[in-house]
C-alpha cells in the first residue's frame, strides 16, 4: 500500500479547520505555566503536587520562576497585609491572558485566621481577580488538580476579542478519606428550625 493511502495520511484527513482563537486557546489550555509562588502551608501541597506522585507536569503545568513567563498564579497560602501589595505587583507583571487560582481557605477568605488575626488579609480577591477558588486547609493535590481542570475549561472558552468569563468558580468540597478506623460519634439530628 502506498504510504499516502494509509488511514490518517490521506490528504483530506490531514487538514484541521479551526479559528485562530480556538487554536490558541487549545494551546494555552495544555500549557498552563504557573508561577512558582508559595507563601504558606498550601505551598507544600503545591510542591507535592509537582512531585513524582501527582506530577502536574503531565498536564503541561511547568513552574516558572518569573511572573513574566507565567500564565497562571496559584496563590497558595496565607496572604498578610504586608504581602498583599507584592502579590498585586506580581500579578501586574504577568502578561495577559492571566489566570488566578486561590488555593486554600486562607487565600479564599482568611481561613482560620479571619477572626482573631490582626495582620492577615481576609481573601486575596480584594487585590487580584480570582478565577477558581479551592477550599481546604490545605487542599489535597487532587483538589488542586480538580481546580486546574475547572480552569482549563475556562481557558478553552477564552477568546482574545470576546468577553471574559469573570464569574468565580468554586471547587466543590472534597470528602477527605477519613481514617476509616475511627468511630465518628453520632451527634443526632440538628434541632428543628435552626439553620
Amino acid at each position: 500500500m502506498n504510504p499516502s493511502d494509509r488511514p490518517g495520511n490521506r490528504d483530506d484527513e490531514q487538514i484541521v479547520l479551526s479559528s485562530v482563537d480556538e487554536f490558541l486557546a487549545w494551546g494555552k489550555e495544555h500549557s498552563l505555566f504557573y508561577l512558582l509562588f508559595a507563601t504558606a502551608c498550601c505551598g507544600i501541597e503545591l510542591m507535592q503536587a509537582g512531585g513524582p506522585r501527582y506530577d502536574v507536569d503531565r498536564l503541561g503545568m511547568i513552574p516558572r520562576a518569573t511572573p513574566r513567563q507565567a500564565d497562571l498564579m496559584i496563590v497558595a497560602g496565607t496572604i498578610t497585609h504586608k504581602m498583599a501589595s507584592r502579590v498585586r505587583t506580581l500579578w501586574e507583571q504577568m502578561t495577559e491572558p492571566r489566570w488566578v487560582v486561590s488555593m486554600g481557605s486562607c487565600a479564599n477568605s482568611g481561613g482560620p485566621f479571619s477572626k482573631w488575626s490582626y495582620s492577615v488579609l481576609n481573601g486575596i480577591d480584594k487585590y487580584v481577580p480570582v478565577d477558581v477558588y479551592i477550599p481546604g486547609c490545605p487542599p489535597r493535590p487532587e483538589a488542586l488538580i480538580d481546580g486546574v481542570m475547572a480552569l482549563r475549561d475556562r481557558v478553552r472558552r477564552y477568546r482574545t476579542l470576546g468577553e471574559r468569563d469573570t464569574t468565580p468558580h468554586v471547587v466543590a468540597g472534597h470528602d477527605a478519606p477519613f481514617g476509616g478506623h475511627c468511630k465518628v460519634p453520632d451527634f443526632g439530628k440538628p434541632p428543628e428550625g435552626k439553620a
Partner: peptide, 15 residues
Amino acid sequence: HGYLHRSIEKIGECV
C-alpha cells in the same frame, strides 16, 4: 521578615 506574620501568638490569647 513579617510577610507571613499571621499573629498566631495573639490568637493563642483569644482561643
